[in-house]
Write a protein that binds this DNA or RNA. Structure first.
Lengths: 159, 159
DNA sequence: CGGCAATGAGTTGTGTGCAACTTAGTTGTG
DNA sequence: CACAACTAAGTTGCACACAACTCATTGCCG
């Protein structure tokens, strides 16, 4: 993963196919690898709470915005029911969440925090600081990273 | 995913826990989401080749550096044998790869491209350009992104 | 009103990703 | 040489992630 500068001339000149190929798979692989590296550190940080990283993301959404239908959680986290249904079932089995069929629209299921689920927030508070420290990035770099990633995701989703 | 600026004052001042929490999960979630968004576009681009994205990464390594033991592939892709063994078995079943037990060290298994595996490279060549275009990023931004991600991964792996 | 497309959740099947373990082969040390 | 420590692959079990599907409910349109 060393920084191998392109062999082809000046900074932003048109690149040869071979260089493009290398840059592409460096970027995509870096993304893939970074995502999994984060996962590993989160796994460790969340071990005591009994949460996986995707479960933690769902809890974050619920801690911030109270009871939500499965659909809305899926929109925020970019996840479909095929992923969320079993995940929420596990959170319910762990006693952190309740699922309530909506009265107005019986297709919809609202996800509510239990007392235990709400209480877990306190124990989760130190996690972000620990994660940010583990990245070793400056705040400005984090913001750059977030902005680039958000933009890429938006663009890719349109295609 | 809107850019919600921190409510707490100046650019890089110490942030409150609540802001940190938000920034943390914005960064980590962005990474997670971007990785999956890439996966979706790759899935489409690789459909015709009959490869998944992780399988494509393995093929890229083999196309670049010829026959390699499973161990080396794992080091480059940051994957362990638990992931690689079944993946390689599928590539072998697809006729793209052969696994050969090493004679010098019988613990080691070398992964070799078959003729079909080597030939597949031609059909994979247009994929990177298509992916880079789909990101909508400038070359300089791609380089920034790659550099940041590589650094974060390295730092996280040390922890 | 009746029927039919659209919607929300859930299920099934495949493919990662990783921890924990097993198996077989190798190396270092007394 | 013997034997413990180590190493490379593979296996097992669990939890995503997503495509493709089912099922029930809702909304719309003639």
């Amino acid at each position: 993963m060393a920084d191998s500068p392109s062999p082809s001339g000046s900074p932003d000149s048109p690149l040869a196919d071979a260089d493009l190929l290398r840059l592409d798979h460096q970027v995509c692989f870096s993304l893939h690898a970074a995502s999994r590296a984060f996962g590993a550190v989160y796994r460790d940080a969340l071990k005591d709470l009994g949460l996986t990283y995707p479960q933690y993301l769902v809890m974050l959404v619920l801690w911030e915005d109270g009871p939500l239908p499965v659909k809305s959680i899926g929109e925020r986290l970019r996840l479909d029911s095929g992923t969320l249904s079993p995940l929420l079932k596990r959170l319910e089995a762990a006693g952190l969440v309740r699922r309530v069929r909506s009265a107005e629209d019986e297709r919809s299921v609202g996800v509510h925090l239990t007392d235990a689920g709400a209480a877990l927030r306190e124990r989760a508070l130190p996690v972000p600081r620990r994660m940010l420290a583990a990245t070793g990035l400056e705040l400005s770099e984090l913001r750059t990273l977030r902005a680039l990633l958000s933009r890429v995701t938006r663009t890719l989703d349109e295609a």
